[in-house]
């Protein structure tokens, strides 16, 4: 509370100071902003100096950079960040980067669990940084890049293989027959929509693939996310029987659904609560039923 009042005061002071000079409005605003930032920075510094153990959290962050000598050998760096109610893992990382080490590298974009950029390995579990409350985690919070993917730098992993697997199941709507009028809506029944609803929530974050013991061992395994994508379209009645057969042929290869060992790891880590194991199991039964028809 006290900091807010101070801020208002300094703002008005800044206004008064810059007014007499003759400048363009843009320059004036920039100068005001710079000054404000300098003051805020000073405030932050005094704030940090006064940090006690009660309202701070220690982050232990995995650091690695092949291009910087001294960082080629992976290590953990500690960052002490002030805690505030509602703070997420991503907030804490952003704080650490903006205040302590601008070279700390991690992906993030929307900050609201939609873009799927910031899946991280936090305290031994795959979680979405922006969706995980710091208050839920034990101190110190250990933050690592996703396991089973190669680390490019710090918390950034190479997602290429994951995207390859996703694309292998042809993850786009592709109906056998399109309406004569190309602009006509292709409607889905409410029941069918309910069936695929959860599977449509995937944000391609890769948490499931990273948690999967089989995907770690068998590089060709499609993985939970890709199979869930296949489920989303194979179960969509608007696509038609031919397309469904093609989709089943993709997922019923040796490195498709059969590799799933129902360890439930993927289902447990999915930040969007998609019942991945359930979908994979349903596709297995669907594939078996489908083949029994031809025997």
């Amino acid at each position: 509370m006290s900091t807010q009042i101070e801020q208002q005061e300094t703002e008005t002071e800044a206004d008064e100071e810059t007014e007499p000079e003759v400048e363009s409005p843009g320059e004036r605003r920039r100068a005001q902003r710079d000054e404000r930032q300098a003051i805020e920075e000073a405030q932050r510094e005094t704030e940090e100096a006064s940090l006690d153990d009660e309202n701070t959290i220690t982050l232990k962050v995995f650091r690695y950079d092949p291009e910087v000598e001294g960082k080629q050998e992976p290590r953990f760096d500690d960052f002490r960040v002030p805690f505030h109610k509602g703070m997420t893992v991503l907030d804490a990382l952003i704080y650490a980067r903006d205040h302590y080490d601008s070279s700390l590298t991690f992906r993030h974009s929307c900050r609201q669990a939609v873009c799927g950029s910031d899946a991280l390995f936090v305290n031994g579990k795959q979680r979405l940084g922006c969706k995980t409350q710091m208050s839920e985690l034990d101190d110190p919070v250990r933050i690592e890049p996703l396991p089973h993917q190669e680390v490019v730098k710090d918390l950034v992993v190479d997602m290429e293989h994951f995207y390859d697997q996703m694309e292998a199941v042809e993850p786009y709507f592709d109906a056998d027959e399109t309406p004569d009028d190309k602009l006509e809506e292709q409607r889905q029944t409410r029941e069918n929509r309910e069936k695929v609803k959860m599977s449509t929530r995937c944000i391609w974050c890769g948490a499931c693939m990273s948690s999967c013991n089989i995907a770690a061992g068998d590089n060709e395994y499609l993985g939970p996310a890709a199979i869930n994508k296949a489920y989303r379209f194979a179960m969509d009645e608007r696509e038609g029987e031919n397309r469904k057969q093609e989709r089943l042929r993709i997922i019923e290869q040796e490195h498709g659904v059969w590799r799933c060992q129902t360890q439930f790891s993927c289902t447990e880590v999915c930040p969007k609560d998609i019942p991945l194991t359930e979908h994979i199991q349903e596709l297995k039964r669907e594939a078996v039923k489908n083949n029994l028809k031809f025997w």
Partner: peptide, 26 residues
């Protein structure tokens, strides 16, 4: 992409304390 660091399989069974029921069952 220039280089990347592969952490190998250490993280698999070295992390057995973090395994959940389904994993233990397997």
């Amino acid at each position: 992409m220039s280089q990347s660091y592969n952490r190998g399989t250490v993280e698999d069974f070295g992390r057995w304390r973090e395994f959940s029921a389904g994993m233990w069952a397997w």
